[in-house]
């Protein structure tokens, strides 16, 4: 009899793990709370750093899935029972699934920009999030103000909900800096007459080709980078927005009017993760993400044998890192069952 692995979450991490496990001869059940698989990437238009269409990655991942993968959408986990060497997962549709290992790939949520009240999201109509901008691009629409005007100036605000003690998130979300640079270029591509101003604390261009993209944004696309955190956003009578910040390179306060503000929202743990972790008794870090068995050498395992972690359930991660992590998880599970 084939070993059956249950994966909770069908984003890049969950589906990649599922694909590799299926190739390695396992039966796989993937549980997804949304009505369709794909997670956040399905909503994204193009990916950093090379601006390739996001759907190319999704197509690649889905291609690997074979008939051994049972995808179940629209279900959440109501309970998990450990019985001998098996896990019995109770689903919201009253069904149960039994497996020999459990992989948590519940990923992340985007920070709720309403919480940064001083930025005016949900109050001023021309304040939008990076995810909403991505939707505009994905739908092939032109970026306009809420009043339908072509913007002359756009402000991009980094670290919204990341590295911010005030909202309780001390950690870096890793992917927002480069997303902001990518989106700044894309705005300039779409609207060559529109000036783009990026307000940042420091730009964490940590991975391959990120720094090159940052240079390209400055040299080729004339994106303005201002080292300063936004202190507040307010609205003019004509619905343009006033930004106040301190330019920490010149050491002077700065006040600027823009037509649209884009908030680069950070990554937070999915609430579903905490719920499942408490069912299983898994430790949660101070940042709210799950703790692995060992942060250095057993990053895909947990303190409970047979339960594995993969992807952004352990903290913010890029797609490249998530795919590598998912493959490692799949390989670790394969090794365990091959060894008997």
């Amino acid at each position: 009899m084939k070993q059956r692995i249950i994966i909770i979450g069908s984003g890049v991490a969950g589906l990649t793990t599922a694909g590799v496990l299926a190739e390695n001869g396992f039966e796989v059940v993937v549980l997804e709370k949304e009505s369709r698989i794909g997670g956040h990437v399905r909503k994204w238009d193009r990916l950093f750093p090379n601006r390739r269409p996001a759907n190319e990655v999704m197509e690649f991942i889905e291609k690997v899935l074979n008939s051994s993968v049972d995808l179940r959408c629209g279900v959440t986990v109501n309970g998990v029972i450990r019985h001998d060497e098996e896990f019995i997962v109770l689903l919201s549709n009253n069904e149960t699934v039994t497996g020999h290992a459990l992989v948590l790939a519940t990923g992340f949520q985007l920070f709720d920009a309403h919480k940064k009240e001083e930025y005016g999201y949900g109050i001023y109509d021309n304040v939008i999030t990076s995810a909403e901008l991505e939707t505009i691009f994905k739908e092939g629409k032109q970026l306009t103000t809420n009043e339908g005007k072509t913007p002359h100036r756009v402000g991009i605000i980094h670290c919204v909900g990341s590295r911010d003690e005030k909202v309780g998130n001390l950690y870096c979300s890793k992917v927002c800096c480069v997303t902001g640079v990518k989106q700044a270029i894309e705005i300039r591509e779409q609207l060559p007459e529109c000036e783009v101003f990026s307000f940042y604390m420091d730009l964490r261009m940590y991975d391959r080709h990120f720094e090159e993209l940052y240079y390209e944004a400055q040299q080729q696309w004339a994106v303005n980078f201002i080292r300063g955190r936004l202190s507040e956003c307010s609205e003019n009578p004509d619905h343009t927005l006033i930004l106040k910040a301190e330019d920490t390179l010149t050491g002077r306060p700065l006040k600027m009017t823009v037509d649209i503000v884009i908030l680069l929202v950070g990554i937070i743990p999915d609430p579903e993760t905490g719920k499942i972790a408490s069912m299983l008794g898994l430790p949660i870090g101070t940042d709210g993400f799950l703790m692995s068995g060992d942060e250095h050498i057993k990053d895909n395992t947990t303190t409970i044998p047979g339960i594995y972690l993969t992807g952004a359930v352990k903290g913010p991660a890029s797609i490249v890192n998530t795919i590598a992590d998912a493959r490692a998880t799949a390989q670790q599970i394969t090794s365990r069952f091959m060894a008997g």
Binding site: H114, E117, G120, Y121, G122, I123, Y124, D125, E235
Partner: peptide
């Protein structure tokens, strides 16, 4: 300005 946004904060 969206008053409902403010009411949400309030």
């Amino acid at each position: 300005m969206n008053i409902e946004g403010k009411r949400r904060v309030w």
